[in-house]
Design a protein around this nucleic acid. Structure first.
Lengths: 236, 236
DNA sequence: CGGTGGGTTGAGAACTATCAAATCGAGTGG
DNA sequence: CCACTCGATTTGATAGTTCTCAACCCACCG
């Protein structure tokens, strides 16, 4: 009985949402079943190959959505093409610029990724009508703003070594990995996040390795040998 | 008759809001009269002298509010005390961290300032009950996030000269001044916004002056002689 | 008139970027 | 299984920018 009821509840959801990878952690988890059904009618799933760009900086902000799997970068460029990554988004994060005309940055897949996307104007209307969504969006945006401002301290005031240590700590925290960290970024991407060059990132890593604070078993793998020391350096 | 009615409408507002400096541009302008009356009961005016700090980074986020007059800085520091200004707020801007336990940055008056402040928990409750306020807050937060990310490009990728030019352009745009710009920041504060030292800021300014792009009639006054050139440099 | 605080200028040190070369690793074909 | 190749990474040498420390200037004030 109990089990049947549960199954019954689940099947009441739109099929795409019932099996959603990020159900319960994305913005939609603020909605009840009827709201979810309404929202699901506005959206659809898309996939991106690593390197594909969903939105270009300055273009019309036509899509918003949730990341289901994979990782994406948010980036801007100077007039002569120098790039800065201004955010990295993980599954269950929200992307796009609701209530805005143009996209303030490019959104590009770092890995193969799948998303659940909505037309922006339709989503805007939905968010106005469903205050739970508006509020969930607000909480996320406030948290993102905190994170962005915290990163400004790194970009404005920390040395290369401190920046690299901070990034490792951030990735470890965000992915919940204790000792072994799988790096989701190439050296070039690390450089673009940290406002450095690839060579400087590489040198900072080897210095941390020589100091015995980390080890590098593979290009995309890293072991934090002395978490305390690493955090101390990251603090600046 | 018409005039009397109008006066009648106005006097229905809480007296403090009726005479508010930023009425019509602060977050409260999303509210109708009854909402405004309810909100006004939660808040009160305070004044800060230049240099006074309202909220400290890491402390409990007990206050939120609107800036009525003056300017404030939002700042964070590294473990060893290097400071980065992560935001400058003007009249009608919102300050504080709604829906958060601790303040992510310090809030300090740059000039003498007056604010309309609310207890955070009371304001949070109010914002949940009045979706207009929640939505206004969301729009502001999204705009702040755009601005913060845009500044990350400056901090991560622009040279000292480009940073100083960008700051001048930003201040000119934000204060709506065309030729003559009154600098709201000291050289040290400019340095703290730009992630530079005071000496580097000074040198960048004299280089712009020698190039005939700006002139400096006073320490806190600046004339943009060649707006096009300045913007070109600022683009990076 | 000396002191004070903010700002500018100068010289040298430190850090990071740039350019170039060497190395590593994964995938490929023999 | 091994040599080969291509792209990514590391390492080295050097140049350029920014920081640091110090001196100096200037307006303001008691």
């Amino acid at each position: 009985m109990y089990r049947l009821a549960k199954i019954g509840d689940e099947s009441a959801l739109p099929p795409s949402c019932g099996a959603c990878e990020v159900r319960g952690s994305a913005i939609c988890c603020a909605l009840d079943d009827s709201g979810l059904t309404a929202l699901s009618r506005l959206g659809h799933r898309i996939t991106l190959a690593a390197g594909e760009t969903l939105l270009w900086e300055g273009d019309e902000a036509i899509t918003v959505g949730n990341v289901l799997s994979g990782m994406l970068k948010l980036s801007t460029v100077t007039g002569d093409g120098r790039e800065q990554i201004v955010g990295v988004v993980y599954p269950s994060d929200f992307i796009g610029r609701p209530f805005g005309k143009e996209s303030p940055h490019s959104v590009t897949a770092l890995t193969d990724a799948s998303l659940c996307v909505f037309g922006r104007t339709a989503f805007d209307r939905f968010a106005r009508e469903h205050e739970e969504v508006g509020h969930a969006l607000l909480e996320r945006t406030l948290a993102e703003l905190d994170r962005a401002r915290h990163w400004m301290l790194l970009l404005g005031r920390k040395s290369a070594g401190e920046r690299v240590a901070s990034l490792i700590v951030e990735i470890a925290d965000r992915t919940g990995s204790a000792g072994v960290v799988d790096l989701p970024l190439s050296r070039q991407q690390m450089a673009d996040v940290l406002g450095l060059t690839i060579e400087t990132v590489s040198r900072a890593l080897t210095r941390l390795k020589r100091a015995g604070i980390i080890s590098l078993p593979g290009l995309r793998q890293l072991v934090i040998e002395q978490p305390g020391q690493l955090r101390e350096i990251a603090r600046g």
